[in-house]
Structures are given as C-alpha cells and as structure tokens.
Design a protein around this nucleic acid. Structure first.
Lengths: 153, 153
DNA sequence: TTCGCTGCAAAGGGTTTGCATATTG
DNA sequence: CAATATGCAAACCCTTTGCAGCGAA
C-alpha cells in the first residue's frame, strides 16, 4: 500500500525521473482496492493529461510491478489487473453476467481483496509427485450484491 | 476423461461431422494428464497431417470446451492449457526457471492434476461483502523433481 | 447433394518494443 | 548537459473470424 511520495522518493533514489505522467499514474493507484486494468488507469489519467500514451501507462505499471510496489493479477485469462496491496492476500471474483446490446454475455468485473491466505492447505500425499510446495493461491468465485439483485428480477 | 469414440458419437448425434483432423485432435487429448497447449496439440497432429491449420485446432478445442468434454485452464496469464479431466479438481504448477540462450528466464511449464477440491474453504466474515460464494479455485506452486535437481547444481 | 468443415489470411485484443524527440535532475 | 521518459507506430503473441472451396453423411 504505497503512497505517491514514497514511490517517487524510492524511484528517484534509483536514478529514475519523476514525470507528471508517472505521478498521476501512481495517484490513480494509491489506496485503491478496485484492481484497475491498464485501460482504466489510462482513462483516468487521460482526463488530466489528454495525450498521454497507453504505452507510457504500461511501462510505468511494469516498473512498479518489477519493483514490488504493485501486484499484477492474472486471473482467469482476463487482462491484467493491478493491486497496490502487495502483502499476501486472496481474492474474490464476481462471476455474474449481463447481456450487452448484441446479446453477448458480459461478465461483471468486480474483484475484491480478502485479507487472509491459506498456508495450512496441503496437497494430498498421493498427488505430491515429488514436488517441493512453496505456496498456493486461492480465488473465490461468487455473485456480488448487485448481480444477486439483478438475478432476482 | 472422454474416449475418442464417445466424443465422435456424441458430436455426430449433434449433427457434427467427424473429420480425420478432429479425430486426431481428440486422440492427442485422450487420457492425457500433461495439459497441452493448442500449439502442442498442433505439433502433435501435424506430425501426421502436415498441413492441418492451427485455426482448425483452435476451433476443435473450443467446441470440446463448449460441450464440456474439455476444461480450459487459464492460469497465471499463460496461454490456455487443455485438460480432458473435467471433474472438479485442483492443480499444482512448477515455478522453476531456466535461462535460455539469450539469458532470459524460461519457466518450467509442468502442471499436474490434484484430485481433491477444497469445498470447506471459507471467506472470512468481514471480507464477505455481501457476496454469495459459489466456488473456489486452488492452485499450488512449487518445484518439480527435475527443477529441484537442477537447483542443487 | 447438402451442410458442415477445412485452410488460409486477415483481424482482434492486450501488451511490449524501437526510436526520435522532449524533459528531468 | 546527460540520461531517462515520452508518444507514436509497429511488432508481438495468442486466439478468433470470414470466406471460398472441400469433404462427410
């Protein structure tokens, strides 16, 4: 859970330069729990710097991920979502769908943090196959309140 | 865990036609536990029908997935891997890496089935946020025997 | 004969890369 | 001033799509 100033300072120490573009991208992530995609961040920053390039957004995000200020979540084949919360935690994803104008199913993109991890989870002995287990990742699937409400109609 | 004949029969009943290409793709999957990618299947089938098209492979796989003969696994942003085992189960993925000729890290692509699921896993109350939880997905990460051996050197 | 299938090539979405120019420190 | 960032366009990878011709039933 970085702050803009903290990231700026640390990156500057590493010989990087802080541009208005970068600062705004950091701001678009600071304290967020909605796991935006690169596009979402692009849209948000573009409201202020209209001709920022999507490539700049991607480069800046990659940098944050590489320096461990940001987690990149690749769940279920969706495009990457970015999470400023970098401690170990799990996720809860809504699987609700709506139909768009063309009658195609569009899935609700809500994704929530879950504070816990599940270190006690074990691979059954006969499935172990000589692997040295390091970690696990748990994702829960369900319907968010909005999608539940929509389903009642 | 389908058999080639079973799939052929069922699809034929649905008005589909069984071509040599399709039959070979089914064979390349029948009973397999290595979770091949579309490319891997393409390579395997191409050894027999050299001018089969990758598009045909993709179309055939999509069809099997849609008719629930095949599971499509999208883990960690990798390209899709296909699993003829369609009952509920978990996976164990090797995170070992080697360096290729250009010094880039290449991850071991081994992926194993784990027979169990973890229906008892709960979302902590204060993380529930009004969601109706339906299921969860657990992936274990670790080092396969080969990668462990390589790390000892 | 008919419809579904094939291969090809093109398009698509998301992401990265190369490069000349602009900006930071 | 030097080095790093930017924006643009092109390239990438994986996957899907459109279409004319081919082949299964």
């Amino acid at each position: 859970m970085f702050t803009v100033d903290e990231v700026c300072e640390k990156l500057r120490e590493g010989g990087k330069k802080i541009t208005p573009q970068r600062r705004l991208i950091y701001q678009a992530l600071e304290g967020k729990t909605n796991h935006p995609t690169a596009e979402k961040i692009y849209d948000e920053v573009r409201a202020i710097i209209p001709d920022i390039s999507l490539a700049t957004v991607y480069k800046t995000l990659r940098e944050l991920v590489d320096s461990h200020y940001l987690l990149e979540l690749k769940i279920d084949g969706e495009s990457s979502r970015f999470d400023p919360r970098t401690d170990q935690h799990s996720h809860l994803k809504c699987i609700g769908t709506t139909l768009n104008a063309k009658g195609e199913a569009v899935t609700c993109l809500r994704l929530e943090d879950i504070s816990v991890t599940f270190p006690q989870l074990q691979v059954p002995e006969n499935d172990q196959r000589g692997y040295l287990i390091i970690s696990n990742e748990v994702v829960f699937f369900g319907y968010c309140p909005d999608c539940q409400a929509r389903m009642k109609n």
